[in-house]
Write a protein that binds this DNA or RNA. Sequence first.
DNA 1: TTGAAAGCGATACCAG
DNA 2: CTGGTATCGCTTTCAA
Lengths: 282, 282
Amino acid sequence: MNIYDIAAEAGTSISTVSRVLNNKGNVNPKIRDRVEAVLKKYDYKPSAIARGMVSKTMKNIAILTVDVRVTHYARMIYVIEQEFSNLGYNVSVCNTGGSIQECNRYFEILSEKQTDGIVLIGSVFNELIKYPEITAKIKDTPVVIANGQVKLPNFYSVLVDDTKAIRMASDYMFDHGRMDLFYVFDIATDSGRAKRQGFLEAMKLRDVPDGNDRVPEDIAITGCNNSPDSRICEPELATLDNKPELLGGMCASLLRDRMEGKESATSVAIQPELVVRGSASF
Amino acid sequence: MNIYDIAAEAGTSISTVSRVLNNKGNVNPKIRDRVEAVLKKYDYKPSAIARGMVSKTMKNIAILTVDVRVTHYARMIYVIEQEFSNLGYNVSVCNTGGSIQECNRYFEILSEKQTDGIVLIGSVFNELIKYPEITAKIKDTPVVIANGQVKLPNFYSVLVDDTKAIRMASDYMFDHGRMDLFYVFDIATDSGRAKRQGFLEAMKLRDVPDGNDRVPEDIAITGCNNSPDSRICEPELATLDNKPELLGGMCASLLRDRMEGKESATSVAIQPELVVRGSASF
DNA sequence: TTGAAAGCGATACCAG
DNA sequence: CTGGTATCGCTTTCAA
């Protein structure tokens, strides 16, 4: 079912159907009604690909990030997706793992698909400036780097002043008489270095005593999902691992089978596993 | 620069260039070399849109989820993206917020774009069975639901046995003499109900005393990112809010400006904010 | 082995 | 206001 079929059934030309589809030009109300009736009858939606052929855009943007599982990145991705979704765009997410080669691979595909814009999340992408042959691949696509900067005509930046941030925190500590500060350095990105440069930061985690109940002796706890959070307390939380990676992997291979027309199960089940840890170890 | 230009410069026809591009048919090595030289000279990449026009696929899949910021979902998205990325697909992420109307909106766009497959993450999507006019929009697209099930010809499922999971945990508690169990019910999805149905679960969080240092009296702490994690301990962690939502939003609007050809700043800076909480309140 | 030509499904210009 | 036609850039027959 294409625009020709619609035109034929409505007894008019594809030009007129196109006008109705796009609310363009003046169309005789009678004919318009006829066309709209056919459109509704088949719940017709024009092919975005054919349209893209003419307009040179598929209304797609892409976000490249080291890893969507990092909550900090996910929060940004969420906002960007919502914003563009409201504009009729789709947002594809690319996990590069911080590898320039992966980045290169994505750039190739994205440029072939005429992606309308790219957002790079994380200062790791500052590395790109060293690889002109890679950035050349997307030289006609607007690129925004979150918390990074690459001096190229099509690159734009949104920067967070990390140095100032840590400086503020350190000052605050010193001003309150905390002279023995620790700074835990996480990764050697530009952002990480900027933070360290902010001077010093006090970090050390200890529990505050509260009441006399002990875990697990007096109170035992188990939770769900085996999230990383379950290991950040003392004692560690026992939890149910419902295997999101496995689940995701199964979804992917099931979908792949379907897309290839392969025979496959309609539904697959996963057995969760109980992970015993300190909060419930007897 | 298109396939005609390449053909012209290589002194051959577009058919032959197409053959070289796709490693198809037999091509005279001499001509092949000539074509490849031109291809390399311009670092030519064929238009995926034009190709899609013929092949009816853009090698794109979509993941619909309530919210990519939920770590549990992000972990699944990561795996799915990696899997399909290796196959040359792009994966777009859609945050529906659990709204069927949003879901409907996405389905419309995805079907116009001839998306090759859809993954639905979360049992909220079970609701879809009540809206045949919505599922009809993607009736020719394979759909996989993670932890959900909709009885339709093109829908497939990967299920987690939530009831059994909670049952295991409860049994484990009871078997160890914990008779006073609490179960904290989170949301009224099918998955949530399945878990509750698993019987009872003990949950209650308390700290274990350890050492005599007190926070913030003896040790003061500040961290980075203002992540939700910073509020799950007692006292709450002071933190630096570097405003990922704002950052994401700025990225989006900057990118949008660029895509519309609007004049705009090349780079924008955000000032982080110190959030004082219990772990560092003096 | 090669190339001419017919689609693919829209948009847009230009006559009428 | 309407419709014929060129066009977008590729893949795929079909002859030669």
